[in-house]
Design a protein around this nucleic acid. Sequence first.
DNA 1: GCCAACGTTGGC
DNA 2: GCCAACGTTGGC
Length: 152
Amino acid sequence: MRLWLMKSEPDVFSIDDLMQRPTQTEPWEGVRNYQARNFMREMQLDDRVFFYHSNCKEAGIVGVMNIVKNAYVDDSAQDSNSPYYDPKSTIENPRWWRVDVGFVEKFSRVITLRELKEISALADFQLVQRGNRLSILPVTQMQWENILNQLT
DNA sequence: GCCAACGTTGGC
DNA sequence: GCCAACGTTGGC
């Protein structure tokens, strides 16, 4: 089982939105970055994922998800009415993929980016490094444990 | 709302 | 294949 972090702007899709879905699952569509796409294709059923709220008042990790469906074609790229439309992604030659995520846990509080930056054990975690814009990141077992320890 | 950082595009 | 221009991300 591998560990990951996925960012979402809570104004667009938050962990509360995920909790309130009838099945508590959601297709993670709209990723339009090759590196992030490649990470999604590496994901396997029941991998664990930190849910990160970005571009908001209190940026940070808000809970845990799991992978409930392996990568498949993100057909929102073929939908000209979608904000994620990409005319260069075709049915014959799809460019973008998505996974389905499921709700696991919402933390009692946000583990903020600010406090993550203060943990020396996380110094080489991509999330806390300057200029990081990647919306999907791999997380090591040690990083995962260090982050969860913030809650105790 | 600002702006630094970064990825992508496209002309050459 | 280089690289300037441009668009986007995301913290602050």
